[in-house]
């Protein structure tokens, strides 16, 4: 029997850098570190940690695919693939019934329609507008002094979500401050933010003509309040991977594996 083979995917995002290692069967190790100001060092660290977790050295990898906004600055040699293709590959392996992927990242929201084989059929990206991206949540959470991973659980306690009268993150920031002064609860504000984002995301999905099943991934998938809000806006159930922030890195690793099969 020949030695087992291992493949890695590296996703250099604007908020965090992720690495996933797969063998012939599936994911065996993963890592995630906030991107900070030096993508190269962080990418090296994430890769080292993930390799240690898998008990491997870098030269044991048979293939590497790199993706994400910072891919050009990766400290490793590997094939570069767009994160939209990597998400398509990853989500389609995680959910074979997936036909639409919503990836809510730090900078952009991307919506892709995929074929049953996991290839992109069409896609759209939010324009340079923070309302449809993870940045909007980060801005509001900072005003409310709510840690990012508590946004979801807290928003689910809302009884009366705040209605935002604007779709602009900059104006919403000042609107949030006015609402706080009027006594609105943080839970209601966050639920309102989810609704505003969901409306924006639903518009993108409808432009591509809604095709279920829909998977929500990226940092936005980590927020347990956002998927139900998007589901409500689209009137369907939304699937979320177990590790939504890793699906592009996972797809990249699987693409590296396919390169060698």
């Amino acid at each position: 029997m020949s030695d087992p083979k291992y493949y890695a995917g590296l996703d250099m995002g604007s908020v965090s850098i992720k690495a996933v290692i797969v063998d012939e069967r599936g994911m065996i190790a993963s890592g995630l570190i906030p991107s900070g100001g030096n993508y190269k060092t962080v990418a090296q660290k994430v890769m080292d940690n993930t390799l240690t977790q898998a008990g491997l050295s870098f030269d044991r990898l048979s293939g590497l695919v790199i993706t994400g906004l910072g891919a050009a600055g990766a400290p490793f040699a590997g094939r570069q693939v767009s994160d939209i293709s990597c998400q398509a590959r990853g989500c389609s392996l995680l959910f074979p019934s997936a036909r639409t992927i919503i990836d809510i990242g730090g900078q952009f929201t991307k919506v892709a329609k995929i074929t049953p084989e996991g290839r992109i059929a069409d896609f759209l990206m939010s324009e340079k507008c923070a309302t449809g991206s993870g940045r909007f949540l980060q801005v509001i959470a900072r005003i409310l002094s709510v840690p990012l991973d508590e946004i979801g659980p807290l928003s689910l306690q809302s009884e009366k979500p705040v209605e935002f009268s604007t779709n602009c993150a900059v104006f919403a920031e000042s609107e949030t401050i006015s609402r706080i002064s009027e006594g609105a609860k943080p839970a209601d504000i966050l639920a309102g933010v989810h609704r505003a984002m969901a409306a924006k995301v639903a518009m993108l999905v409808k432009r591509l003509k809604l095709t279920p099943d829909v998977v929500l991934t990226g940092g936005g998938g980590q927020d347990s309040g956002l998927a139900p809000a998007v589901g409500e806006a689209l009137k369907i159930n939304i699937l979320v991977p177990e590790f939504p922030r890793l699906s592009a890195a996972f797809g990249a690793a699987c693409l590296a594996r396919e390169d060698h099969s």
Partner: peptide
């Protein structure tokens, strides 16, 4: 693609173009 008539924003379009070509 809608863009800003500025070379500094063009890098951000790379992902979209790559994905389109892959498609």
């Amino acid at each position: 693609i809608e863009d800003d008539y500025s070379t500094s924003t063009i890098g951000q379009l790379r992902t979209r173009i790559q994905a389109f070509l892959e498609m």
